[in-house]
Design a protein around this nucleic acid. Sequence first.
DNA 1: GGCGTTCTAGAATATTCGCCC
DNA 2: CGGGCGAATATTCTAGAACGC
Lengths: 419, 419, 419
Amino acid sequence: MKQNYQVPAFLTKLWTLVDDSCTNELVCWSEEGCSFIVLDEQRFSKEVLPLYYKHCNMTSFIRQLNMYGFHKVVPLDSGLLKEDGRGDSVEFQHEHFRKDQPHLLTLIHRKVSVSRGVDDAGQISQILVEISQARGWQDSFDFKLMALCRDNESLWRELNSLQQKHQQQHRIICKIMQFIINTVGSKGMKGLKRKLPMIEISGETHSVPKYSRPSDSSVDSNLPSFSMPETPSPQDIPQLDSLSPGVYSNGMVFSDITHLLEPLPEQDSDPVVENTCPTSPLSPALSPVDLTLSLLDDPAGQDMAEKLAERNELVDPLSLIDSSLAAIQAYPLSPSLDTLDELFRPTSESDTHTPKRKRETKQGGNTHSYKYTAGIVRPVLQHEDLSFGGDSVEADILPSLLRLAQEASIPLHTDTLSV
Amino acid sequence: MKQNYQVPAFLTKLWTLVDDSCTNELVCWSEEGCSFIVLDEQRFSKEVLPLYYKHCNMTSFIRQLNMYGFHKVVPLDSGLLKEDGRGDSVEFQHEHFRKDQPHLLTLIHRKVSVSRGVDDAGQISQILVEISQARGWQDSFDFKLMALCRDNESLWRELNSLQQKHQQQHRIICKIMQFIINTVGSKGMKGLKRKLPMIEISGETHSVPKYSRPSDSSVDSNLPSFSMPETPSPQDIPQLDSLSPGVYSNGMVFSDITHLLEPLPEQDSDPVVENTCPTSPLSPALSPVDLTLSLLDDPAGQDMAEKLAERNELVDPLSLIDSSLAAIQAYPLSPSLDTLDELFRPTSESDTHTPKRKRETKQGGNTHSYKYTAGIVRPVLQHEDLSFGGDSVEADILPSLLRLAQEASIPLHTDTLSV
Amino acid sequence: MKQNYQVPAFLTKLWTLVDDSCTNELVCWSEEGCSFIVLDEQRFSKEVLPLYYKHCNMTSFIRQLNMYGFHKVVPLDSGLLKEDGRGDSVEFQHEHFRKDQPHLLTLIHRKVSVSRGVDDAGQISQILVEISQARGWQDSFDFKLMALCRDNESLWRELNSLQQKHQQQHRIICKIMQFIINTVGSKGMKGLKRKLPMIEISGETHSVPKYSRPSDSSVDSNLPSFSMPETPSPQDIPQLDSLSPGVYSNGMVFSDITHLLEPLPEQDSDPVVENTCPTSPLSPALSPVDLTLSLLDDPAGQDMAEKLAERNELVDPLSLIDSSLAAIQAYPLSPSLDTLDELFRPTSESDTHTPKRKRETKQGGNTHSYKYTAGIVRPVLQHEDLSFGGDSVEADILPSLLRLAQEASIPLHTDTLSV
DNA sequence: GGCGTTCTAGAATATTCGCCC
DNA sequence: CGGGCGAATATTCTAGAACGC
């Protein structure tokens, strides 16, 4: 007579009272045993229900039936009204409520309203799992980032190395040209040869300074702002200056990217001439955008200014050269120099802005001590200018060829400038 | 009456009082001996409980029963209210509380309060903390990523700049060579220049194009797909083209990396010869490794092949030079030219793999729809070919040589383009 | 007896039964009227409770009291056990349960288990949202990282390509020099060639090798550490060796960074000469800052030193050239050679470390251990040294110069090979 | 720190009310 | 109008928690 655990009292009591032969005239199994019938609702509720439940209301009983998934069996004769009181019978059924099979009661479950408890437990455990996964990912990302940072450092190193080599090569080329000039000059022209040195030297000091100075200053003004002040840009320039006419303005700049900006939604890529940096919409005050723009503006302005100045300077000499071909013997030398000088120059400008990238925007709302600095080593490449000026030459030797080279070089300049 | 150690006093006392025949009218074993029944709660609590415990409260007794895992046995007749005080009996049972088996008491354990409530609260608060941390990390990562992206942009800029400089240098070198050819030719050798080295050379120039052309097309097909269409590649080329015979195919290409691969768990670094690319363990079919290997293999093969070819070609001239020093005046010229010509060609291959980077790593299990495009500006460096283009030459001296150089340059271009 | 709407039946019934003078011997107001007392729990539960509620359990009654915020008034004599059944009285009170003030009942509210359910539900759902967001971010990061990795690969490729081109150019330059030497030598100077040039050259060759060798060795020792040992450095060198005297040690090396290191406490990357890589924040002793500074200082010092040395060397020849233009036929040659020779040497090594650039990794409290592997392909760039060593020269024409160039190339090869 | 006692709360079921189609 | 259900309350069983030992 004890109810099974797991089976609510209502069900065991229900099965018991239906199965009780003493109450068969009030409540009983249907013929098939698949449902039960309350023959006399009135008497059943008043006489039977209180024996099992704390009430004597048919509605409460029915409510419980519904709560456990029982359904009323609609009688076929529902249409006709039964005049006598005897006729009010109610039939309910449930899939697992069968005569002689009380064990099926365990399959009957009370409807529960979303049972939050179970819900939460599962959710929480799942959440914990996901969080641990997220952590793993974060670690992974951090690791990858470190690797990438290191890779970039290597890239900068290599690139810088290559740039220096390039510069070196340029010096070699300059030397070769000097040699050629000297040799050819000394050979071809006897009386003229002495001119060269002087001209070269004087020409260099004159023309080159004019040209190189600006670039130097640009480097000075630009790089410092961009690169770290702590890294004094190496000065090979003076040396080179004294050495050869075509000088590389060589500035070794290290810039590191220590501050991280907010994620930049849209970035404009921008190669050589106008590099737009990624911008962050999130921090308006000191937003990366501003920084970027300011950084870019500066250089851009400078660059443009420089380029214009440069162009002017270049145009001038060229026209000069062209117009003064008459005095070739002495001239040939310096002209060729000019031309070469020009050839050496152009590309360097584009670089100038590059270095500016160094910026130290402090990252704001990072509440975590994740102060990771993408340890990026970024040697600012030397913006060696390739300038090495030679001009048009036409002497008895081969000035025409030189001029050709000169002319060829001109467009290139414009080219680079146009970039 | 001594309790077994290990068995709480409550249990031994319980078993004792239930088993005590003197109190059978108040508390006793059930018929099966699997539970005990308090027949008269009132009297039991006031008369029996104090004999064993420090209280006379049924509630405290029941609390202890529950604490040890006992459960109330629900009577089916719970519905009826018993007016008289006599009827209230309570039945409890426990798996290991059996009549005649007091030794089972050792199996009954007091519940310890794991207190889930605190747990959840703690868990939830902890979860919130972790989530905020995760957010911080995400911001940090984002920041770092942006920094890296910017760094890469700078790298591309610098690299491009250097490439342009290199190109510029190449032009200078070409000019120097032209000058040398013209100068030396015009000067040194009058009758020798017409030699046929040129013809031979021309033969070479013919064959070369055939080879290089295809490669050009490959470049066309590859680079576009890789780089972004939206960034029209800057055209210095036309200008350059018009400028000098030896032209660099200069294409400024921006490519962005829009698709991401799965995170790579472990990667092997692989330096010098065979660079292994990062690999994705998740997609074996098109794993980065495979791609990388294939990419590398190709170039490697090409490189090696070319280098061999190169060596042969180069060796020839060199040995020629060495062996034919006797005929210095005329001979030295063409061989060296050849050698130079050859020198101009080979390296371009290295570029060849570059384009290959186009890869179609399908990113697998990414369930999220990420439309992120690492706004990476990636100016594709100009695959300037080092081809040495001859210019227009006008001299009775050695025009043929120059033209040869020009023609040689063409194939080279195609070569690089083919990359 | 109709209960006020808004006031639960329990409260109205409670007030009624307490206030009922018929049950004063079982339950009554306290003297102050601020609480009520159940004088005889036994009889009260069996005789009074059923009159108002559907049960006769004191526990159920108390449960309801607690549910409505009533509290038991702890008796001062709680310590003593009352043997007789009469002594057990229970007193409960509620702020708004007062004698003669039934209207206060509206202020008594049944507790609803909002407790964790509502609260947590919101939190949990929010947490789930945030977690999904975090997942999205992670995927996004992953995507970006992959993009960056690919971008870096491209950078390496491009850089390598450019390096090869540079190398190629260097070969060309060497060829040009050879050509110049041969041509000029064969032509211009017959008796003069044996002049100083040799001496100077030999002197230089002596000094230069001494200088360059060490650097080479440094490369040897350093590069290995940086590049992977497992990758045999490509051998173009042999070829080159046989090919040309002035050779670039050209090694196309792809190294990929497949393993991600822990925030590497110690890294050895080392490009050419000695580049120190980013360091792990964890080891304060070797903090990135320190390393960086030291690195920078070093290279800077080296660079400066080298540049000075370089300048001196260069200046010398140059001034020599300038001053000795008189003896052009013979002289021009050797000086230029010297100059060139020197030019080939210097920068390469110094640059290598230069890259050590600056880094600002201040990574602070990284509490997590990162096991990340960024599939980064990192072709180790060839650290081609530009050295072009002159050797002893002895030939009537200029074969000595050529041989010098050749021999000079040997060390270079070994250099690259050693890598 | 485990155990015992007490007060209170949680949780599931039970009862009732009312709504709504 | 009545079956079904939501919601509030009620009853029961069990658990949490504070405190003392």
